[in-house]
């Protein structure tokens, strides 16, 4: 009896992907072009279906304006889709009261593009990193955990009492990553996490994300306009254009044999240095 139940319980987590989106759509109303005409509609995201297995890394590439940021908001339950559902561990993720999504937010955290904007200028580093711990009611010593994650992103825990403006862009992004790691998530979503950084720092932050993902067996959803960034960390890749996914598959396969003309164009646009 017990064995059967255990097996069933085990199956529930093993069967099906950890994090999935099905037929996801979100459109925005545009201002009317004529006084009596119908309001225009822009489909920012249209019929997007994604799956992320436990511990896997999925990259979403597309140029700016392709609906990547809207997709991130939908995946995180920060915006309500017009169509489709987001599921995590088989449970639907529906935006609503913050308490109702605690279970989800404890396991899925996010790093935004611009660390200058994603850290409150009037909040100390310590308070910012502790914010998810306080909001999600994570048990344990928060102060200790803050020190731990600051160390995990190669920052001195003594920076706790300082303010974001005292740090460089790369350091700020480390702080933002520390904040995301604080509640011990299973999945880290990165919305263009390195686009605002200069090239040298970009590589450091990407390496850090890769190491952290490996060490903590984190699932990654990495959104970027830069194929190189995504290829570096992700085993699966999805190409997005005008709100829809045009191609999806294993990174190697997609990069070596791009099927869709848009993917081919995207790859052709990657600047390459001639071999020395």
């Amino acid at each position: 009896m017990t064995a059967v139940r255990e097996q069933a319980g085990g199956d529930a987590t093993a069967v099906g992907p950890l994090f999935e989106a099905e037929g996801l759509g979100r459109s925005y109303r545009l201002p009317r072009t004529s006084p009596f005409g119908p309001p225009g509609v822009r489909h920012a995201v249209h019929d997007v279906t994604l799956r992320l297995a436990d511990g896997a890394a999925l990259g979403i590439v597309g140029e700016s304006g392709s609906g990547k940021s809207t997709l991130v908001r939908l995946l995180l339950g920060l915006d309500r889709p017009d169509a489709g559902t987001v599921r995590y561990r088989g449970r639907p993720v529906v935006p609503g009261r913050p308490r109702a999504l605690r279970w989800f937010r404890r396991e899925v955290q996010v790093v935004f593009q611009d660390p200058a904007g994603s850290l409150d200028p009037r909040m100390t580093v310590g308070a910012a990193v502790a914010e998810p711990l306080a909001c999600l009611g994570v048990p344990g010593d928060h102060r200790e955990r803050v020190d731990e994650v600051l160390r995990a992103v190669d920052l001195d825990p003594d920076v706790r009492g300082r303010y974001p403006h005292e740090f460089s862009g790369g350091q700020r992004q480390r702080i933002a990553i520390a904040r995301a790691l604080a509640p011990r998530p299973r999945v880290l979503v990165g919305d263009e996490p390195v686009s605002a950084l200069d090239v040298a720092v970009r590589a450091q932050i990407l390496d850090l994300l890769g190491q952290l993902a490996q060490r903590h067996r984190l699932g990654l959803v990495l959104v970027s306009h830069d194929v190189g960034v995504v290829a570096r960390l992700c085993d699966q890749i999805a190409v997005m254009r005008d709100g829809t996914l045009v191609e999806q598959g294993a990174t190697d396969a997609v990069l070596s044999r791009p099927a869709h003309p848009y993917t081919q164009a995207l790859l052709a646009a990657v600047p390459r240095l001639p071999p020395p």
Partner: peptide, 17 residues
């Protein structure tokens, strides 16, 4: 409208906080 408010919501903060 700032990103840090979005980040706070992603961190589970309610309107009051």
């Amino acid at each position: 409208g700032a990103d840090y408010v979005l980040a706070a919501r992603a961190a589970g903060a309610g309107t009051g906080r």
